[in-house]
Design a protein around this nucleic acid. Structure first.
Lengths: 244, 244
DNA sequence: TGTACATCAGTGAACGCGCGTTCACTGATGTAC
DNA sequence: TGTACATCAGTGAACGCGCGTTCACTGATGTAC
């Protein structure tokens, strides 16, 4: 009759629920470490269970399948990368558009160098037989959103040089329809294109460095790699129309 | 005493040798099909042997290990991509530098769309535990060499606008030391940088499209994807200094 | 031309491994009356 | 306060799978004298 029992009941339930969530977090944490040391291929539910001192079947209380664990890791990686980029960007003076762009790019690269396997999981070859479910979409767009905001501000600030815009024709307009749902109509096609290209270039460059394609091209020393990345950013800022 | 026996002997040897080489080719061919349908993770010596109607141990007469088979496939993929790009480039009028650049890029993209798993093998995440041996280096640089040649011709033709060259400082010069062994000193650092960037962008763009990152950004229809790629190339040609 | 020997492709069984997932169960903890 | 019942975390054994690699072998073909 009183609410007491109900309250006590839900308090206990909540406690159990919290314990559950803690364990899920612990599982993901261990899985992330396995990923970091051995790569995605070596990631198995049994290995995670072993590490946690559980029997392998017990993990199934918390995670439905290997695919679900992969999804958790992917979401985790996108979030970690997104948060790093957001933190770096937030530190820069709002008016310094070039500085904000640089901050995002450097943060993304640094994160990738520190978490190579997590990076490979989200920007490398797709895991065969795995289809990313809906819940990965949000976290996946955090870096993109930062860049899109920058783009919009550039347009408002009149930072774009309209004289040198090539004529792309109606094909591009149609092709960009999906991304238009998130970007104001006033932003011209060519500018959207340049935004996507900056984003493409950023992760293309990081992938090339991380996956070994700069071997015999750019010196291996971290300082050399940084100098090269810096030069790339200068040129990409130029592509974006940022005259920094 | 006469050379006869020796000749006969080596003729027989050669026949056996040819049979051997044929079988190695057959093994690689079957492996490539497995790769194309099921991806690199599903590739196993046992599966290849099964497909060939052999017992799994017999494959070891021809291929030393799974890693060696992977190497053969990687070399194969680089060669196939390189040949496709070379063929496409060769068809264009030598004087049409922009046309040659476009031909290389379109050929690379087409090849990747037709051979997604082979593309992922060479431009996706590195296979964990596998280190590419020396013999992959040559085939890996075929597309790069095409682009480098183009770059050199552009410089000789005076196609570059030196006015808009940003000052990169001495860091870039040091960083580019390795690639300098293959490129004339007269080509300025910024031009080498732009060449590498065009190359980076090309494969960054192909990877983004193939690995699903354009989902919800660019319409899925092949015609839309092509129009978008075309627009990217226009902008990248601009980055290279090609005013096509 | 005929015979002893060498080469080598392919066989079949085996070793030892780790995986994802299921299922009936034990036992601790919380809930209801 | 005490008892019957419900919930649910974790166990342990098992199923069925495929893998890479080794090894002693058979049998066909080629070689040398």
């Amino acid at each position: 009759m009183s609410r007491e029992p109900a309250t006590v009941e839900s308090a206990a339930r909540r406690a159990r629920q919290r314990a559950r969530e803690d364990l899920v977090r612990e599982i993901v944490e261990v899985a992330r470490q396995k990923l970091a040391t051995d790569g995605a291929a070596a990631l198995s539910l049994r290995a995670v269970a072993r590490e946690l001192g559980m029997v392998s079947s017990a993990v199934y209380r918390y995670v439905a399948s290997r695919d679900e664990l992969l999804t958790l890791l992917i979401v985790d990686a996108y979030d970690s990368l997104g948060a790093a980029a957001e933190r770096a960007e937030a530190k820069v003076d709002r008016a310094d558009v070039v500085g904000r762009f640089d901050a995002i790019c450097h943060a993304a690269r640094r994160w990738a160098l520190r978490h190579p396997h997590e990076y490979a999981l989200i920007y490398g070859s797709p895991v065969p037989g795995y289809a990313a479910p809906q819940e990965t979409v949000g976290p996946a767009t955090r870096v993109t959103r930062l860049l899109a905001t920058l783009l919009a501000e550039m347009r408002q600030g009149g930072l774009v040089d309209p004289a040198s815009v090539p004529d792309h024709g109606p094909g591009l307009r149609k092709a960009l329809a999906p991304v238009r749902t998130a970007i104001a109509d006033e932003v011209p096609d060519d500018m959207v294109l340049r935004g996507i290209m900056a984003w493409t270039y950023l992760f293309g460059a990081i992938s090339f460095e991380l996956f070994g394609h700069l071997h015999n091209v750019v010196a291996e020393a971290p300082s050399a790699r940084e100098a090269f990345f810096e030069a790339e950013l200068t040129r990409i800022a130029g592509l974006l129309g940022l005259t920094g």
